[in-house]
């Protein structure tokens, strides 16, 4: 849950990139680190990998200062996608303010996406998060050949309440759009709770712009 540190005038927002193994969560973060130009940008922290597979998490800190002087800090995490690291996934997911689910667009990954999404829903409840947690679903790897078409995806996810985005994280396309979609959802929740517009002169657009998106 986002914390507003009154003393230090700082709001910390936690976003988690979730999804099946090798769907491109870390790549999303790497590209954001390269492409974004926020007010403040920390170093990307990658904790131990094993053959390019995340073992613990990746962390990209970002931030900006609102007109009121409030410092807004984003912590972007990735979870390990492999099934065996479920405990780590739960710990990283704890206290999240928003989730970006990175799905693999390839046809042969439909099952893995489904399993991981179920896992997200189950873990969201386990770690005590609200079912109204802001969520964006990104279909990654649009550059590959045997993938579900956008029309197919739109049709399959027609009943879903979450924004859908399409990306090719490796090339960098769609990565910022996904992040921006997540920020919009998170902003609405935070505005309800902390009156960002009223007290800090922070609009939806300036919130996303501050983060560089």
């Amino acid at each position: 849950m986002a914390e507003l540190d009154e003393q230090r005038n700082r709001l910390t927002v936690k976003l988690v990139y979730y999804g099946p193994a090798l769907s491109g969560k870390t790549t999303n973060l790497t590209r954001l680190h390269d492409l974004l130009a926020p007010g403040l940008k920390g170093e990307m922290m990658t904790l131990e990998t094993e053959g390019d597979r995340t073992l613990f998490f990746d962390l990209l800190p970002l931030g900006f200062t609102a007109p009121s002087g409030l410092r807004v800090k984003f912590k972007l995490f990735t979870v390990p996608g492999q099934v065996i690291h479920d405990g780590t996934r739960k710990a990283v997911l704890s206290r999240a303010d928003g989730v970006i689910f990175v799905a693999d667009s390839q046809r042969n990954q439909v099952m893995n996406n489904g399993v991981s999404f179920d896992n997200l829903m189950r873990n969201t409840a386990t770690v005590g998060l609200d079912s109204t947690l802001p969520l964006v679903v990104q279909f990654n790897k649009r550059d590959l050949s045997d993938i579900l078409s956008e029309a197919e995806i739109m049709e399959r996810w027609a009943g879903a309440a979450w924004p859908l985005t399409f990306a090719c994280a490796l090339e960098g396309s769609g990565v910022i759009e996904t992040f921006a979609a997540a920020l919009r959802g998170v902003y609405d929740c935070l505005d309800d709770k902390f009156s960002l517009q009223e007290r800090h002169g922070l609009s939806r657009e300036s919130f996303a712009a501050g983060a560089g998106a």
């Binding site: 922290m45 904790l47 613990f56 998490f57 405990g87 780590t88 739960k90 710990a91 990283v92 704890s94």
Partner: peptide, 21 residues
Amino acid sequence: LASVRRYRMAADLHLEVVNMD
């Protein structure tokens, strides 16, 4: 300090996971 912080986060995460399990 960044290196120490990295180590601490990993260690604390491990502890959190173990406790949760």
